[in-house]
Nucleic acid binder design. Structure first.
Lengths: 143, 143
DNA sequence: AAGACCAACTGGAATCATTCCAGTTTAGGG
DNA sequence: CCCTAAACTGGAATGATTCCAGTTGGTCTT
């Protein structure tokens, strides 16, 4: 045990790696989204304020946009619910949403690859991504 | 040619068949959604007013909800865009949305059945439906 | 054909998530 | 250490949709 134990990648490292300035609201937002999976902008606002004191609504939206653009966060927008953010990016996984309470769970692609990414008829559209959303009831709500 | 030529199913028939009252706004809304595929509530409001004169915003939303609940219409809610309505219901087809202009096209399920309907891990959720949305550029916007 | 009842419609105000704006602060390269 | 673009503040505005209380009008009953 000399100089092993590579420290976990910190929010600061992530920001710098993405060429973004390291600011308190951004670090706090990354913490917030990491802690509560699938947090809404409002959740993040709450967590960030709890950590830092006064932070404007706009700052949180700006931060979430910047981090989403930099691919440090992924935005999920289930129909009828406010947007949610998660730190699992890059792998194309999907989501299951509870019709009753809006709870969200991660779901790995059931087929694993191409099939659900290639529409049968594309009407001349250039297809970039495919997004799958499962709807149902979460364990709590189905009881 | 005696009594053949079964008249096309009219909006009035559809409404009665679903146990709904036949009213002018409802009939006009069914026409509107039939004419322009994937119409927004605002599009429908425009068409209905053009046909009937004064109709309240609320009436259109009420009508669209009633028709959606009765499965005479299907609601599509692409992230970042207002809801759209279509008359193709029952078959589980999907949609492709243009990132630039929001145009929507219909896409039949590429695999045809179960694969994309069965998540690999469901976290104890009771899965009811799977929804696939393709994102890309429409022919106009990719030019 | 007339009455009655409840679903449907009117119009206006409210909500919610998100964005726009103009001015101030601050991270971090020179 | 200073400067400038990038970030943040706070307040007003937006757009889609819903809530509310009161009125109208299909349709079922007689």
């Amino acid at each position: 045990m000399t100089s092993t134990a590579p420290a976990a990648v910190t929010p600061e490292d992530l920001l710098r790696g993405a060429g973004l300035r390291v600011t308190a609201p951004r670090v706090a937002a990354l913490h917030a989204v990491g802690d509560s999976q699938h947090a809404t902008a409002d959740d993040v606002l709450g967590s960030v304020r709890a950590e830092l004191g006064t932070v404007s609504v706009q700052a949180v939206y700006d931060v979430l946009h910047a981090l989403t653009d930099a691919a440090l966060l992924r935005r999920i927008e289930p129909a009828g619910h406010p947007a949610r953010y998660e730190r699992r990016t890059g792998d194309n996984h999907h989501h299951i949403v509870c019709r009753a309470c809006g709870a969200i769970g991660d779901v790995d692609c059931s087929v694993g690859h191409a099939p659900c990414l290639t529409p049968s008829a594309d009407h001349g559209f250039v297809v970039e991504t495919a997004e799958v959303t499962y709807w149902g009831l979460c364990p709590d709500c189905s009881a």
